[in-house]
Simulated assay, not measured.
Amino acid sequence: MSHGHEKRQGMQGFDPDYVDIVDYIIRCTHKIWEERNVGLIYSHYAHNVLIHTTDGITYGRDKVIADSIKTMAAFPDVRLFGDDVIWSGNDREGFHSSHRIMWVAHNTGYSIYGPPTGRRVTRFGIAHCYVKENRVVEEWIARDELALIRQLGFDEFELARRMVERDYAAGIKSPVPVGTGEVDRLLGQTTPEAIPEKGASFDPENFIRRFFQEVWNWRMFGKLNEYFVPNYMGRVPTNRELYGLGDLSAYITQLIAAFPDARILVDHICYLGDETEGYRLAVRWTMQGTHQGPGYLGEPRGKRVNLMGISHFIIKNGKILREWTTYDEFALLKQTLWPV
């Protein structure tokens, strides 16, 4: 972490000790979590900040502070290791940052899931922030919550049912309201819309949009070798490590099998790099679908779901080498269990 004061980019409106947006993201995270200065949230988050997760949207800085303290009480020795920050923007219009984090702790206090287990846990996550003048104005958080719950030793189905019953009895509305329209992956009986290549030179945003459209939405799994190197490596939820196109194909088809009408919509992309050195991309996306097929979520229950995810990719010579994708499978499970 940098502690210098020589600015590496324009940071108007930010605290003077931050030299660029990466420094801001890494060091304010350290100050709040590892130095235990939770009160810095007052000067680093907007009073009316919006926090998006697959569980829904929360509003206001006080909720951020309360949730942070609950987590610290449950995991007092928590360490957040920042692996990468991919960003775009400037200090006039605001910055978008996508912060990939590995979270390590021991559960020695009461958590939102139950009594302390004493177990050591790791949790992978990515936080996408919109930051302006030293404050996070809006944040999208995708965390591997199911991996955490399994490491704590809880049964995810029993826990999910208990939490859904509690929230339903308290009058909390379903994350996906009854009466939503169909998933518009197709227009009637037509084929999915094609995204043409853009120009002669490599365009990383066009490339990644075509990948999601052709492989995920069009189900052209045979095109994986057009987008990925043969020795591709990926990390996906519940600490699964993928190696090669066979693992990747199995992962994609198993998720679509559980949600046969699934469609992924790309919500935001930012990237760094060039064609010579390669690109680092951050992609925030939403999957819509209906739980109609077999899978790790158990018996199909016919529930409509919305899932927010964030992916980081490394692209070199026109193909994806590495991928880190995370989303909250426990929140997804709760959506499938929600009473109609």
Rank of each mutant, 00 (worst) to 15 (best):
D91M: 09
W103C: 08
G109L: 00
D67G: 12
M72W: 11
A105Q: 00
K70S: 13
D91C: 14
A74N: 02
G82R: 07
D77M: 07
R100W: 06
H106Y: 06
A105I: 00
G82Q: 10
A66K: 13
G89W: 04
D84H: 03
E93M: 14
D67R: 14
I69T: 15
H96V: 15
V104L: 15
S111E: 00
D91Y: 07
F95R: 02
R100F: 05
G109T: 00
E93R: 14
S88F: 02
R100P: 02
W103V: 09
P76K: 04
Y113W: 07
V64Y: 04
V64W: 05
D77V: 09
N107D: 07
T71S: 12
V78C: 09
T71E: 10
S88D: 10
M102Y: 11
R92N: 13
S98Y: 15
W103M: 11
A73P: 04
T71F: 14
P76A: 04
I69M: 14
T108Y: 03
A66S: 13
R79A: 08
Y113T: 04
A66T: 11
H96A: 11
G60K: 08
N107F: 07
A74Y: 00
D83K: 12
A74M: 03
D84K: 06
G60H: 08
L80N: 09
L80S: 05
F75I: 04
D67P: 03
M72H: 13
S97N: 02
V85A: 02
N107P: 04
W87S: 01
S88R: 02
N90M: 09
F81N: 13
S97K: 01
A73S: 12
D83S: 07
L80C: 09
G82M: 11
R61G: 05
F75L: 10
H96S: 14
R61M: 12
N90H: 06
R79H: 11
I101L: 10
R79S: 07
Y113C: 03
D91F: 08
M102R: 15
V64N: 05
I69V: 15
K70I: 06
P76C: 05
I86A: 02
V85I: 11
A66D: 12
I112A: 13
Y110R: 15
Y110M: 13
S98G: 10
D91A: 15
I69Y: 08
K70D: 12
F95D: 01
W87L: 01
S88C: 07
F81K: 13
K70A: 12
R92S: 12
F81E: 14
I101H: 05
D83I: 03
D77T: 09
V85L: 04
A105R: 00
Y110E: 15
P76N: 06
N90D: 15
W87G: 00
T71C: 11
G89N: 04
Y110W: 14
G82S: 12
E93W: 10
Y113R: 02
A105W: 00
V64D: 05
D91N: 10
G89H: 04
R79N: 08
I112F: 07
R92A: 14
I112V: 14
R100E: 06
R92V: 12
E93N: 15
S111L: 03
I86G: 01
S68V: 07
D62H: 12
D62S: 13
F75V: 02
S88Q: 06
F75S: 01
R61F: 09
H96N: 14
F95Q: 01
Y110T: 15
D67I: 09
P76Q: 05
I69R: 14
